[in-house]
Amino acid sequence: MHRFWEKVIKPVLIAAKPSVIVEVGSLSGKNTFKLLDYGKHCKAQCVVVEPAPQFDVELLQLIYGDGLKLMRQLSLEALPLIERYDVLLLDGDHNWYTVYNELKQAERTAVNMGTFPIVMLHDTQWPYGRRDMYYFPSSIPESMRQPHALKGIEAGKSELLESGGWNATVHNALHEHGERNGVLTAIEDFMRESPFKLKWYQLYSNNGLGMIVPDDHPILDVLDYILDTSGL
């Protein structure tokens, strides 16, 4: 997601002026560090949901103080504990069950807040737009898991490769497409059901970035310009 920072995420934050930003999926912190710098200068708190951060948490806590809140939990455990936020960035477990339920939790929080947040989602295109990936398959209910294997994938091929390929070290669904399979499928299912009036935006580079925005949000006045001029 960090590849979208300069041309999309940062301009959106400047226009939206969020008080609380939630990032799901930080890992090495490439996008997190940018969010924290933004928050420090613009008086926004960053809540980072990452069960296994690969950066010096104590050092960041010293630098950013209350501007950083780290939750070492899976997203579906952490999100119900966060009472309000203005922007939600989802780049964690790339599968239908997780993404769909992350959005449903955002919807429940929005009911209490009275407004739906801006939500940005990474990996809405290949390889995981239409294919589930599981870091820890046991964390997903068995009935919600696609048949999967520790094998790599290749663009243009639905079947997994016998050797090599993209992301061969994680559990990938055996096939692309079909019901309840992939990040984009989860978003479409959620959007079709949600009682909120929402707009959907899509960028196709860097594995895809999607954005869900309430249809009455003030940022809509500049969002088309931000996306059209991003070149992404």
Rank of each mutant, 00 (worst) to 15 (best):
residue 81 L to Q: 13
residue 63 I to M: 11
residue 147 P to M: 11
residue 149 A to E: 14
residue 86 D to E: 14
residue 68 L to H: 09
residue 153 I to C: 11
residue 105 Q to D: 11
residue 109 T to A: 10
residue 146 Q to E: 09
residue 118 I to S: 06
residue 131 R to N: 06
residue 148 H to A: 04
residue 61 Q to E: 15
residue 151 K to N: 09
residue 171 H to C: 02
residue 160 L to N: 06
residue 166 W to Q: 11
residue 171 H to W: 08
residue 176 E to F: 05
residue 176 E to P: 06
residue 121 L to E: 05
residue 69 K to I: 08
residue 149 A to H: 07
residue 100 Y to W: 08
residue 173 A to S: 03
residue 164 G to E: 11
residue 67 G to K: 13
residue 95 N to H: 02
residue 128 Y to T: 06
residue 107 E to W: 04
residue 157 K to V: 00
residue 117 P to I: 02
residue 71 M to P: 01
residue 163 S to D: 13
residue 164 G to V: 01
residue 70 L to Y: 02
residue 63 I to W: 15
residue 145 R to E: 06
residue 128 Y to C: 03
residue 170 V to I: 15
residue 94 H to G: 06
residue 94 H to S: 05
residue 68 L to W: 13
residue 147 P to C: 10
residue 76 L to P: 00
residue 112 N to D: 14
residue 144 M to C: 14
residue 84 R to F: 09
residue 72 R to V: 00
residue 162 E to Y: 02
residue 121 L to V: 06
residue 148 H to Y: 02
residue 151 K to C: 08
residue 82 I to Q: 00
residue 110 A to T: 13
residue 159 E to Q: 15
residue 138 S to M: 11
residue 164 G to R: 12
residue 118 I to Q: 08
residue 167 N to W: 14
residue 151 K to W: 03
residue 178 G to W: 00
residue 166 W to H: 14
residue 114 G to M: 05
residue 113 M to K: 05
residue 107 E to S: 10
residue 121 L to K: 00
residue 87 V to D: 08
residue 96 W to T: 07
residue 111 V to R: 12
residue 64 Y to A: 07
residue 67 G to I: 06
residue 59 L to H: 13
residue 137 P to Y: 01
residue 179 E to Y: 00
residue 147 P to R: 05
residue 120 M to E: 07
residue 108 R to M: 09
residue 179 E to W: 00
residue 140 I to N: 02
residue 93 D to M: 10
residue 114 G to F: 10
residue 97 Y to S: 12
residue 112 N to A: 14
residue 75 S to C: 02
residue 71 M to F: 12
